[in-house]
Structure formats: structure tokens, C-alpha cells
Design a protein around this nucleic acid. Structure first.
Ligand SMILES: [Mg+2]
Ligand SMILES: [Mg+2]
Length: 1140
RNA sequence: UUUCGGAGCGC
DNA sequence: ATTACTATTGGCGCTCCGAAA
């Protein structure tokens, strides 16, 4: 990771800093050895000014750096920057590309089909095809098209498509209708390219490889206002878009400076309808950023502004304005949320950022911003992006900020790149936690204070606290931009996009699929191949994306020779094994049979052969070869390069090339990928296994002791203390292996001085590094508890300590004693409550919404999450849930004894179950670490922990003591979240249209006569109730509830209810609230709970049982009805409120 | 011992 | 009294947990 952060940057007393300190902090953070080379960025561009100057009204061409693009109705809009001659600066520009044509490739049959679809003897002539196509043209009302005969290659899944043949290429407008993708006729068997979209065509055919300078020719000024860009251009043909030629003497390498805005908002939860409302928005704007030159960024000009809004029922604390005025801050105070959002949109329009940065911006802040703007009717909402819009897209269901943003939401920001440091960290760092607090500490060494969203409103009570909250908001926007610079997110994604040739905005969103798809599209299109079409109707039908089954075998993992080694261990590792294999064996779509066999039979899982008839190097190997060669080139330049600034950008380039090459294999094995090639993926892994095995055999033949190996590496016990001997062995094997291959390359990865090999993929080792004549000792831990989040800090510390002792130079006897006494001390301290609660926290991630777990009652973290959610704390998939195991004599199950740290803080009856921790968190780990150490005795270890030598006893006593409890008693508490929530809802009793009898609808399944049956079956007459009947009754029922709610709520003045936020959710309403409001709030809430109840009834995800496909469709349709109402009512409810 | 479900490390 | 669907998701190998057989 580039450079290490400077060490001593801390904020004293959390947030008591002056505004000027923010600046000095940044200064300190970013100053480093490279500062001498940082120049005034604008000077870099001086030499290019003449070449790229731009005037709207004349000239044959102009230069344009594109960063983003979108498509609407077959027209493509490119967004980017041009240099404005008059004002001498870069401004945003939108180029509208009209008249992009669909490209169809019609595969003619050899023989004509007759009426029955049978092949005849009659050969197909050109005229036959044209005739049939003419009928199709009329049928689909296509105004006109042109034909041309072309030669194309094909190598993908579809059977019966020749490797190379003549096609009829049809070209027609996107204004005309799209043909169905599975169309075929008497004279042709298939048409490729029916559903290819205009943007893809433009990018592929004009060979746009990521953001770059484009020469735009034959352009006109736009007549309509299409975008929010400062200037707009129209071209009438895609041919006007030309990537600047590399051989052009006027070539421009520099990326223009960008306007970057780091945006952060604070919200308050409106308990009435579970809505997040925006109360503070804060942004830092860097108006002139050279993304490659990241070191200079924070020291460039920037400015910050903040908008604060008043809460409806809460006056601002006295003296706030004076305090703000004296603090020299740009804080705009407005009266309500509408004004805040209008102001924010105005700023965005004025400053026109190219890139918006935030932490978890895409899934959280953006979603909230859009929901609020839609609800409050902000007219210029689309300024969040650069394309003018009047129609709202479908927003994510629900109230906003509750889950991932939809594609529609992401697309409205088109023209401005969203740079989300949460996504970025997830993809390019492997940090155990990607929260802003953790990342700040890790990357910037800055301690960040957590403010729980549900407590925000409390900060509105005093002026100092409110200032604190404002500073916190401002500081968060600084942090996310600092993290973005630190992990070099923009230059890295810029490079990745350049190699893959996709959209930069997609790279920033983090999916590998899109990058690899475009990488291959460019590569195959360039060689005149027809590429697979976008959505395969066959695949879409059986979209069982729910299940992730392993479909072919992967890497070889050698059985480890477990134990403790104190002689040198040699590690050899193949560089980029899979990409190398593809080159070594010339594995490609063109050399391996990838036809879709359509059946899951044996044949399909048989390993394909590499066909020898193609002597020519395949496309994939060629592609990877150029990537590898480019990387080698870059690395060789790095060796001689002296310019530190250049070094950093070269290193990023090198990294991006490696990432691109390595991610290709995963994409080929991904079953929904457009270039899915299971045979290739299978072949690659099988070759990998073969190669590793051969390497092991080679080493063994030379009588070396291979103790372990994983996929692409082997470890050898050299049984010597002489490092030179070890190196010789390494070189010997390396030479012998590398001789056998042309592309594959094994390298010495390192040496372990000592090693503790515990299990497959689980070991610790001591590495000695020589640095400036000093030997630095590092303990490397792989797969060990120490690196895992699901162990509490106490376990991790214990594990760390023991490893340290085992690897120390102490005698075994000393070491043993130290461990025993450490454990004695530890257990004593635990039992006498010497540690804080935090030391007992266990982390687990929520992989789905807590409600969606089928076994929620036995998962500690799920139960904790459910309780958190009931209290109004948002719990989303991907969140890490903390819990601590407590003692409770009434409860047996671990899951029921798990509590969130905050619950323990509040409830002093909860006591940590020390014995459980000693038995389950400390002992197993200690035993497993010490198992290979002969001198250390298991009994002694348990005794040191005061555990009477065995887990068994603990379990025994527990089992005995639990046998007195009725098993059913457990379920009571467990059910609380749901049972309690839906305690007062009205049950749904639809009438069966067959027997006209009412019966309660209880969920997906109904227990009847001891059997579980679908609840779509009427329990009275056992006939299936049709969808229509149910839907109508559901509409009716919901409308009744809504009507009831509206009648009451119109009687009084509605208010937001931020004041009562600290009241817990079930505890109805606070005393300070008058009766009228109480009533309304209660009703509002009950309406939402009622609707949630309906949604719960139809939630198919929750049940573990399998459901018939048709029934599943009915349930999800019913669920969608409910969701639509929820969305609609949420909107109306807010509208009503905002009138006051 | 298997199955299912759940963690998240490893390459 | 008949819903919705534009759209999204890299691979496999290995060891833990718990529950029901
Ligand atoms: Mg490797
Ligand atoms: Mg390796």
C-alpha cells in the first residue's frame, strides 16, 4: 500500500478541535518525501492548452475527455470535460451521439426448411433470405434496413454455428423495434445482435477503452437542454467519435483535472413511518484535482460548506448562530428539509462536480437523498447527476436507506462518477471491517467517533452538541475523501477501466463481471468474432441464483504434515498460476470445445480436450500475454525509475494489470456470465492440480520433504539452519520446474524460520527480514483465529501470546511455564471480572436481512439483529453484528444468551458467562495451538484455566441441568420480535371463491391435520384459491386500513415526530406528547406494522421449505402488491406532512 | 456418520 | 379478479458452529 501513514495523528478528546485544526491535520497527513516533486498542477496543462481548446460554435473538431456515458432510446450521451478557451479552464460537456445503428448478424441456413420445419433439398439463395427478411421487416414495422454479406467467426456456446462463415449483416435504426432474440426462419437459423444496446455498440465499435481523449468531428451545438453540463454538443454519427490516435504527435496523455465533491449527510429517523430525514448535509469541494498525482491533492485548494436544517418541533439552541459565526465556518441554516435539498442541488449545479465521494454513498446516502427529494417534490433533483430528468425512476422499495440502491437509482447520477469508499475498500483492501471508523484508524490513523444514527436528534438540544454534530458531519466528508486518496481509488479504477474498456462508473461500483465482459467483447470483436448476446433467454428461465453450488473442482490442497518446525521452511509459488496455464496450454474458446450440451450428464462434466488443429494462438492466451508483457514492461521501468510521482502511478498500473489478468478465470467460471465457459474453467483448474502434483513429485524425487501446498505453492522442510543452503535448494527446484514450461514460472516466495502447521489453510510462521542490518521478526498467521472476526479479543490476545512464546528463543520449559502462568492469570482475571465487556465481543456478519433467515432462532447474531431492528437500529445484509454471551440459568441455547454490548450496558442483570468463554473461546484455541508441542500437556492447559481438565464436564452439567426444562419453553422468548410486533395487527381472512368461507391466512404454509400444506389451498374446501381473487381481496383489505388511517390523521396537524425518537418502539408514546398526536402516531405506526404484517405473510424467502414455481409467483406477486402500497403510502404520508 | 443451515478464512 | 420481469451477483477448498436424521 503505497506509503505508510505518518504515525501520530490523533484527535484529542474525540471532537474538540478547532476548525483550523482540520487543515493542519490534513497537512500533516499528506506531507511526505514526495512533496518536493509536487508542482502546481495547473502548470502541467499549459503545454496542452492550445491543442485542446474548445469553442462551441466553430471548428471542425475538438478534444473531449470522456468519463461516463448513458443510453436512452438508442441515443448515447457521453459526459466529460473540454477545455474552455475563453475562461481558461476545464468545463463539463455532454456529447449526444445520434443515429447509432443496430447491427444484426443473420446466419443463413444451408437448405431451406419446409412448412413443417423439416429441412429440404433446396439450397438457400441470397434472394430467399432477403425475401424472408422483408416479411419480417414489415411484420415488425421496421422502416428500413441495409444488408451486407460479411464473414465472421464464432466460438461460443451455441451449437450448430460454424467456426467461420458468411452472415448477412443488417443495419437499422434504434428507433425501430427490436427483434426477439430467439427469432429464426425458413432461410436462416439464428440472428445475433438483436438485443445489443447502443452504448455497447458505440464503445466496442469505436474502440473506446475507458476514459480517454476523444476527437469529436462534425459537431453542432445542441439545440435542446439535455443535460446539466456547461456545454452541450450533438453529433449525427458515431463516426464522429474517434479515440485520439497514439501515433498522433498531438497525443495527450494527461488526464484533465477533476472537480471532486465529498458529500456526507446526517439523518434523523422519523419513527412514525420509519423514514430517514436529512438534517445536515456537508461537502468538501476540491475544484482542481489531478487524480494520478494524489499526494498533492489534499494540499490543493478546497472549500467546505454545510447546510443545517431546523427540526419541526425543536427550536435551535440559543446562541447557536453566534457561535457558528464566530467559528468561521460556512454553515447555512435553513428552515426545513426542502430548503436544505434545494440548496444542496444548487451548490451541485454551481460547482458541477465530476466525481462525488462518500462512504457507503451509493447504498445509503444516495438512496435517502433520492427518496427525500421525490417525497418532497424537489424540482431540480436530477442535478445529482448530469442528465436532465423529469420522470422519476423506480426507487428502492421502502422508506429509503434500508438496503441496496437499485440500478435505476445509480443511473440517475450518470455524468458524475460515484466514488464510494465503502465499495472501494471492500474490493481493493482486505480489511476485516469496512466501516468508516475502522478504515480511518487503519489507513489514516485517525480516531473517529461513532454517532449512532438513531441518536442524531439528541444533538439538537444544546448548541455545543449541535456544533459537535456539524463538525462530525464535516469531518466524515473529509475522512471519506482522504481514504479515497489514500487507497488511490481513482487512479486504480481509471487504469482498470482503461484495460477492460468498460464504463468507469461500473468499475467504481465494484463488479468484476462488467470489466471482464468488456475486456472479452473488445478482444473478440477486434478479431471479427460474433460475441454471445447479452441475455440468454434459456438462462433467465432457470435463474436459481439463490443456490450456490460448486459445479466443478478447483485447486489441489496437499495434506499438511502437521507439527512444529524449527528448521527453515522454503516456500515456492507459481506466479499467476491460472493466467499462465491459459497461455501455456493455449486454452481459448477457439481451441476448447465450449458448446452448450444443455444437459447435466456425464458428458458435460468430462474434461475437454485441447484441440490441436488450431496451431494459431487463441484469443485468451494472446490477451493475457499482452497483459503480462505490459506488466513486465511496467515493472522494468519501475526498477530504473527515479521520479517518485511516476513510481506511484507505475505501481498502480502494474497492480491493475495483475488484477485484470487474474480476474478473468473467475469470470469464465461464473455461470451467469456472457462468456460462461465451464469447460475452460475446468480445464484450467485441472491443469493447475496436475502442475502442482508434478511439482511435488519433482521435489520428492530429489528427496525433499514437502510438508504442505495450496493450489499454486509448495512448502519444503529443508531441515537445515543454513539460509544459503535453503536458497540453493530453492534455486535448484525453481530451475528444474521452470525448464519444463514456457509460460509458467515458479518463484521463491520466502523462507520461514519456524513454522507451526496446524491444519489445511491454517498455520503460523516466523519470518526473519533483514532491514538495515537489523533482523526484524514477523509472525505470519494464515487462517488462524487471530485473523478471524468470530473470536473475541480475549481469545485473539491469548492466541497471539502463545504464538509469540512458541516462536521465541526461550527454552521449551520456560515457554511452557510462561503459557501456563499466562492462562492462570487470564482465567483468574476473567473470573474476577477484570476485563471490560468489549473484550468479550464476538463479531458475525449478516448475510441477508435478519427476517429472511429460516433458522433465525438458533443463530445468535440473527437474534441480536432482530432485537436491534425492533429498537429501530437498521440491520442490513453485510452488517457486522456484535454480541456477547451472557449467563442465564433459564436459557440453554447459546443463541438466546447472546446480547448486544449495548443491551449489557443498559441491563445490569446481564452477566457475562465467563465459564462459557473459558470453555468455548479460550480452551479449544489453546489446545489446538499447543497440540503439536509435545512438552505442553492438554490436562495442564485446562487446569491452568481452572477447567478441571475437560470440556466434557461442562457439557454434562449443562445437559443435565437442561433436561429439567421443557423444550417448548425456549420458543417463547424467541418469538418475541415477531409475535410482539404483530400483536395488534388485524389478521387477514380472505374468502375462498369456491366455498365462500372465510379462513385466516397464516403465511406461506398452513399446518393442517399434522401436515404442512400450501396456504393457497382453502382449508375448508381444499381447492386452490386463484391469484385474482386473493389479489382483489388484498387490495380491498389494505385500502380499508388506509382509509381508516386517513380519516383520523386529517383531523389534527401532523408533525414529524423526531422528539420521541429515544422512546423505544414498542413503548408507544412518550408522556410529553399530547393525546391527539399520540393517536396519530400510533395509527401511523400501526398502519405500517399492518402492512409489514401482510408483507411478512407473503415472504417466501423466510421459509426453508421448497415452494412450487407457480405458487412462488403468486406469493411474490401478492408481496409486491403490499410493497407498492407501502411505497405509495410512505410518499403520501410525507406529502401530507410537508404541507404544514 | 450424513444431511441441512450458518459463519469466513484460504488460494 | 389475474402480478411482475428491463437490469444486479467472479471461482472453488477447508474448517468452524448448530440442529435433525
Ligand atoms: Mg501465486
Ligand atoms: Mg500462493
Amino acid at each position: 500500500m503505497g506509503t505508510s501513514p505518518s504515525k501520530k495523528i490523533k484527535i484529542k478528546n474525540e471532537y474538540e478541535y478547532e476548525s483550523s485544526e482540520i487543515n493542519s491535520l490534513k497537512q500533516q497527513e499528506w506531507i511526505n518525501i514526495h512533496q518536493t516533486v509536487s508542482k502546481n498542477t495547473s502548470n502541467c496543462y499549459n503545454s496542452y492548452y492550445q491543442k485542446i481548446e474548445f469553442e462551441e460554435n466553430n471548428g471542425e473538431h475538438f478534444l473531449f475527455y470522456w468519463i461516463d456515458a448513458m443510453e436512452k432510446m438508442g441515443t448515447v450521451y457521453l459526459f466529460g470535460k473540454v477545455y474552455d478557451k475563453r475562461n481558461k479552464k476545464f468545463i463539463s460537456c455532454c456529447v449526444t451521439v445520434n443515429n447509432i445503428m443496430r447491427n444484426l448478424f443473420i446466419l443463413p441456413r444451408k437448405y431451406l426448411l419446409n412448412e413443417n420445419g423439416k429441412e429440404t433439398e433446396q439450397k438457400v439463395e441470397i434472394i430467399d433470405v432477403l425475401e424472408e427478411m422483408e416479411n419480417i421487416r414489415k411484420k415488425y414495422q421496421i422502416s428500413s434496413w441495409r444488408f451486407k454479406s460479411v464473414k465472421r467467426k464464432y466460438a461460443f456456446e451455441e451449437q450448430d454455428v460454424p467456426a467461420e462463415t458468411n452472415y448477412f449483416k443488417a443495419v437499422y435504426s434504434f428507433k425501430d423495434r427490436q427483434l426477439p432474440s430467439n427469432i429464426s426462419g425458413k432461410t436462416f437459423s439464428r440472428i445475433f445482435g438483436t438485443n445489443t444496446n447502443a452504448l455497447e455498440l458505440l464503445i466496442i465499435k469505436r474502440k473506446l477503452m475507458g476514459p480517454c481523449w476523444i476527437k469529436v468531428t462534425n459537431y453542432n451545438k445542441s439545440q435542446r437542454m439535455i443535460s446539466w453540463c456547461k456545454t452541450e454538443i450533438v453529433v449525427s454519427s458515431p463516426k464522429s467519435i474517434n479515440v485520439c490516435n497514439k501515433n498522433d504527435p498531438e497525443i495527450i496523455k494527461e488526464i484533465p483535472p477533476f472537480v471532486i465533491m465529498s458529500l456526507n449527510i446526517k439523518t434523523v429517523l422519523n419513527t412514525k413511518c420509519n423514514l430517514n430525514e436529512i438534517v445536515i448535509a456537508s461537502a468538501i469541494i476540491y475544484p482542481n484535482v489531478n487524480i494520478v498525482d494524489y499526494i498533492t491533492n489534499p494540499r490543493q485548494e478546497h472549500d467546505q460548506f454545510t447546510i443545517l436544517r431546523k427540526l419541526p418541533d425543536v427550536p435551535f439552541p440559543f446562541g447557536l448562530k453566534e457561535l457558528l459565526a464566530s467559528s468561521n465556518k460556512k454553515v447555512e441554516i435553513v428552515q426545513n428539509e426542502i430548503a436544505l435539498l434545494n440548496y444542496l442541488m444548487a451548490i451541485i449545479q454551481k460547482r458541477d462536480p465530476d466525481i462525488i465521494v462518500g462512504h457507503n454513498f451509493i447504498d445509503f446516502h444516495l438512496d435517502i437523498l433520492l427518496h427525500r427529494m421525490k417525497s418532497l417534490g424537489i424540482s431540480n433533483w436530477s442535478r445529482i447527476g448530469r442528465f436532465r430528468r423529469t420522470m422519476w425512476p423506480n426507487l428502492q422499495l421502502g422508506a429509503g436507506g434500508m438496503g441496496e440502491s437499485s440500478i435505476a437509482e445509480k443511473s440517475v447520477t450518470c455524468g458524475r462518477l460515484l466514488c464510494d469508499t465503502f465499495y472501494g475498500a471492500k474490493e481493493y483492501l482486505n480489511s476485516p471491517n469496512n466501516g468508516l471508523t475502522y478504515l480511518s484508524k487503519l489507513l489514516l490513523n485517525i480516531k473517529r467517533e461513532e454517532i449512532e444514527p438513531e441518536k442524531t436528534f439528541k444533538y439538537f438540544l444544546t448548541k455545543n452538541q449541535l456544533i459537535h454534530l456539524i463538525q462530525h458531519t464535516e469531518f466524515d466528508s473529509f475522512l471519506s475523501s482522504a481514504i479515497m486518496f489514500k487507497i488511490q481509488l481513482l487512479p486504480l479504477t481509471n487504469q482498470l477501466t482503461g484495460f477492460a474498456g468498460n464504463l468507469w462508473s461500473k468499475t467504481l461500483c465494484g463488479s468484476l463481471v462488467d470489466r471482464n465482459e468488456f475486456l472479452l467483447l473488445h478482444a473478440f470483436h477486434g478479431k471479427k468474432f460474433i460475441c454471445p448476446d447479452k441475455y440468454d433467454y434459456k438462462k433467465r428461465q432457470n435463474n436459481n441464483w439463490n443456490k450456490k453450488k460448486t459445479t466443478y473442482s478447483g485447486g489441489l490442497v496437499l495434506e499438511p504434515k502437521k507439527g512444529f518446525y524449527n528448521k527453515y521452511i522454503l516456500i515456492l509459488d507459481f506466479n499467476s498460476l491460472y493466467p499462465s496455464i491459459i497461455q501455456e496450454y493455449n486454452i481459448c474458446f477457439t481451441t476448447v470445445n465450449c458448446k452448450d450440451n444443455n444437459e447435466d450428464n456425464e458428458e458435460n462434466n468430462k474434461l475437454p480436450e485441447i484441440s490441436n488443429q488450431f496451431l494459431e494462438v487463441g484469443i485468451l492466451p494472446k490477451l493475457l500475454k499482452t497483459l503480462v508483457q505490459r506488466r513486465k514492461q511496467v515493472k522494468s521501468i519501475i526498477k530504473t525509475c527515479k521520479d517518485p510521482k511516476e513510481l506511484i502511478s507505475l505501481d498502480i498500473r502494474q497492480k491493475a494489470l495483475k488484477l485484470t489478468a487474474n480476474s478473468l478465470y473467475g469470470y469464465l467460471g461464473y455461470n451467469l456470465s456472457r462468456f460462461y465457459a465451464k469447460p475452460i474453467a475446468m480445464l484450467v483448474t485441472s491443469k493447475g492440480r496436475e502442475i502442482l502434483q508434478n511439482t511435488v513429485d519433482l521435489a520428492k524425487k530429489r528427496s525433499y520433504d514437502v510438508i504442505y501446498g495450496d493450489t499454486d505453492s509448495i512448502m519444503i522442510n529443508t531441515n537445515t539452519d543454513d539460509l544459503n543452503k535453503v536458497k540453493n535448494i530453492g534455486n535448484e527446484i525453481k530451475k528444474a520446474v521452470n525448464e519444463k514450461y514456457k509460460f509458467l514460472e515458479i518463484e521463491i516466495e520466502g523462507y520461514y524460520r519456524k513454522m507451526l502447521l496446524l491444519r489445511k489453510k491454517n498455520y503460523a510462521a516466523l519470518i526473519e527480514k533483514e532491514l538495515n542490518n537489523k533482523i526484524e521478526k514477523i509472525i505470519e498467521k494464515k487462517g488462524a483465529e487471530v485473523v478471524r472476526r468470530d473470536w473475541c479479543p480475549l481469545s485473539i490476545n491469548a492466541s497471539d501470546y502463545i504464538l509469540e512464546q512458541l516462536f521465541s528463543d526461550d527454552s521449551r520449559e520456560n515457554c511452557k511455564e510462561k503459557i501456563y502462568s499466562y492462562l492462570r492469570k487470564l482465567s483468574e482475571n476473567i473470573r474476577t471480572n477484570q476485563y471490560i465487556t468489549e473484550d468479550y465481543i464476538i463479531n458475525k456478519t449478516l448475510s441477508k436481512n435478519p427476517e429472511d433467515y429460516s433458522d433465525w432462532n438458533i443463530q445468535p447474531h440473527v437474534l441480536v439483529a432482530l432485537r436491534l431492528k425492533a429498537k429501530g437500529v437498521g440491520c442490513h445484509p453485510g452488517d457486522t453484528i456484535q454480541y456477547v454471551v451472557c449467563k442465564d440459568d433459564q436459557k440453554k441455547n447459546l443463541s438466546e444468551r447472546a446480547y448486544h454490548p449495548n443491551e449489557i450496558k443498559i441491563n445490569n442483570k446481564l452477566k457475562i458467562d465467563y465459564e462459557w468463554y473459558l470453555n468455548e473461546q479460550i480452551l479449544p484455541l489453546v489446545l489446538s495451538l499447543c497440540e503439536p508441542i509435545e512438552e505442553v500437556n492438554n490436562n495442564e492447559l485446562s487446569k491452568s484455566l481452572g477447567l478441571n481438565s475437560s470440556k466434557y464436564i461442562y457439557y454434562q452439567s449443562n445437559a443435565f441441568y437442561n433436561s429439567n426444562l421443557e423444550p417448548t419453553t425456549f420458543t417463547f422468548d424467541i418469538n418475541i420480535p415477531k409475535e410482539q410486533k404483530f400483536k395488534n395487527v388485524e389478521k387477514w381472512n380472505p374468502i375462498c371463491c369456491h366455498c365462500n368461507q372465510k379462513s385466516e391466512f397464516v403465511g406461506i404454509f398452513r399446518e393442517k391435520d399434522g401436515n404442512s400444506q400450501s396456504s393457497l389451498k382453502c382449508p375448508k374446501c381444499n381447492k386452490m384459491m386463484p391469484y385474482g381473487s386473493l389479489a382483489a381481496q388484498l387490495h380491498h383489505a389494505i385500502k380499508n386500513h388506509v382509509k381508516k388511517f386517513n380519516n383520523v390523521s386529517n383531523c389534527d396537524n401532523s408533525h414529524t415526530h423526531t422528539k420521541q425518537l429515544n422512546v423505544n418502539i414498542k413503548g408507544c408514546i412518550n408522556q410529553s406528547c399530547n393525546g391527539n398526536k399520540t393517536n396519530e402516531v400510533y395509527l401511523g405506526k400501526s398502519l405500517f406494522i399492518q402492512l409489514e404484517y401482510y408483507s411478512y405473510l407473503f415472504n417466501v424467502k423466510k421459509t426453508g421449505k421448497s415452494i412450487e414455481k407457480e405458487e412462488l409467483a403468486v406469493f411474490s406477486a401478492l408481496n409486491n402488491i403490499v410493497k407498492r402500497y407501502i411505497e405509495k403510502i410512505t410518499r403520501e404520508y410525507v406529502d401530507q406532512k410537508s404541507i404544514t
